[in-house]
Design a protein around this nucleic acid. Structure first.
Lengths: 190, 190
DNA sequence: GAATTTTGTTATCAGTTGATAACTTAGCTG
DNA sequence: CAGCTAAGTTATCAACTGATAACAAAATTC
């Protein structure tokens, strides 16, 4: 067997993209402090040196990854009367880690990550959602939806307080969908 | 000025109690991974050595501190028709860190702490709350209340997405109280 | 085609972390 | 009061962290 040494093609943009992808995955699954730059680099099939070179620091990489994860926004093509069910369906899909809420929940432990989370979430998630919602207290209602989403994902996936054996409790999911929809419909803000 | 050296009284139980208190505070304010054992020991006016000797490990100390923080349960003397308002009032009290939700939210980043959180919360918070609630899906509804509490504290205190300048948005607080109360009243579970 | 810039690798630093070992000494016991 | 146990202190370990410096070689430029 002749093992030929690959000429190892060079491609900065591709490497950068792989790092960003790996960071999204690692931060969503392991959390900010648990995901080390070496580990992220390994997933991206590179070295931590390049990671730092391309993104400056772990915190800046987190910011970029969070922004990237929030790019394909929740809303957009969803009908107004369907957001509750839509989110519920997304968040209970098995074997799929829903990144934005997971990243937010698992980054809360680090002060630096917290500051970044607040800023990016406000800009890329709350503001668009508020605009989409419209009506009175739009911003507060948008935050409410993110509260529900974050804690729903946190408690059903990361901190499973109820025996989550075969999927997630239907009563819980139904409550989540209904409560989100109430916020959308505005009936929740009297 | 004659500076006399104190005979430094020895008292294991008192020291242990101070460590536990310090741990509660540090874990609630800084989070599991950010609160180092040296730092906790300093707050407790001891050494990290004694901390480890008395509690075995940082993880076990966290477990003890979380259990301790959940001992004076939310409920108890609260009237059924008042839980929503009661919690809302507690969580918006200025300059007071409400420990159980803060500890839960800021511990989610560490896998070991997550396991502990799930177990202790289930036993000391969800189960009693479910019993207090009664009715259909009591356990799921109890978890819902903890979801709301955790994320409310997280988003209003730790990850302030909305400019929380002078207190917390009244619309948000009202929504929280109402939603919790709906769960208590059972009207939320159809 | 030589020189320079860019992409990637290897070795390593300095700080921090949870945890122990080894040593003192207060305070109780007999 | 001698001796032992338990409470507390100091020094230190080993592993891991984010981040750099120094070096190698591919690709681009002139």
């Amino acid at each position: 067997m002749v093992s030929e040494v690959q000429p190892k093609r060079r491609n900065a943009t591709a490497t950068r993209a792989r790092i960003l992808q790996a960071a999204e995955q690692a931060f969503a699954e392991l959390g900010y402090s648990q995901a080390g730059i070496r580990e992220i680099a390994t997933i991206a099939r590179t070295s931590s040196t390049l990671l730092i070179r391309y993104f400056g620091s772990k915190a800046k990489l987190f910011e970029a990854a969070l922004a990237e994860a929030m790019r394909p926004d929740f809303i957009g093509s969803v009908e107004r009367q369907n957001l509750g069910e839509h989110l519920a369906e997304m968040f209970t899909r098995p074997d799929v880690v829903i990144r934005p809420p997971a990243m937010i929940a698992l980054a809360a432990g680090d002060p630096q990550a917290r500051e970044i989370t607040a800023r990016v979430t406000q800009e890329l998630a709350v503001k668009p959602m508020a605009q989409w919602l419209g009506g009175a207290d739009a911003e507060a209602r948008a935050v409410q939806i993110f509260m529900l989403s974050t804690s729903f994902v946190l408690y059903t996936r990361q901190v499973p307080v109820m025996p989550v054996e075969r999927g997630i409790d239907p009563a819980m999911t139904a409550w989540f969908a209904r409560t989100v929809q109430d916020i959308v419909d505005g009936s929740a803000s009297l």
